[in-house]
Design a protein around this nucleic acid. Sequence first.
DNA 1: AGTGACGCCTGGGAGC
DNA 2: TGCTCCCAGGCGTCAC
Length: 280
Amino acid sequence: MPELPEVETVRLGLERGVAGRTIASVDVGHPRSVRRHTAGAGDFAGRLAGRTVLSAQRRGKYLWLPLDSGDALTGHLGMSGQLLVVPADSPLQKHLHVRLRFTDEGRELRFVDQRTFGGLLVVPGGEPVPPLLAHIARDPLDPDFDDEQFVERVRRRRTGLKRALLDQTLVSGIGNIYADETLWRAQLHGERATDRLSRPAVRRVLGHAREVLLEAVAAGGTSFDALYVSTDGVSGLFERSLNAYGREGEPCPRCGAPVRRESFMNRSSFSCPRCQPRPR
DNA sequence: AGTGACGCCTGGGAGC
DNA sequence: TGCTCCCAGGCGTCAC
């Protein structure tokens, strides 16, 4: 469930917790967590030891730490990944897969991941973005996000609006939760055809997405359980602000109709049957 | 090239 | 009580 607000909360924690520090050693406990590092866990650890972390960056739901070697430690939290900055003697988490210790012997960085959809890898380049992430679009909170280009690209697509919002090559950072919240605010059904939306309608959708993401960042993200937490292990508070997602049967906060749940792409979509009628 | 389906994972909860 | 089944869903890969 980590989407932009959750990943941004983690990025801030990494900026505060590990930027400027030098990595001493790396332990990979679960090879699956570094499966995208094709040269293997040994190479992964070797490229990190002795390197200094320059900063913490994010593109969409990807994070990376540029290193003084010119490489970048890159990560994706997937469904259940956590990057924790914790005292070196704190108890080992059940699904702890990667540990990074620092030369100052202070707090260490731990990658914990129950479902192992997430992972870490070291890639060349980090400025402005590692080539690995070149296909990921900017997010709506990025000052360089091009609103009009987005509007044109969406209207050229022949797909449903929710699919477009979830397409990280069109706009990044939005997942199932914030897509549903954006559509609820825009009062549009996710299956509305993108090529039949007017330019102002797409602009309004983008505006709602930006507002939802901004409010969620301010709340420290959304947490349903202990799976999503900040680098300090703290849960986000946005869950209480959700209007549609996860609220099947509860009254729509706008019109009172019971929120409906529909199956979509092997997952669930939540919407108001009255405010967001299905197209045609 | 754009579009959409599929598989990867584990723990918690429902149902029997 | 213990078993089975279902659900959560981002993204790389692949087929059309």
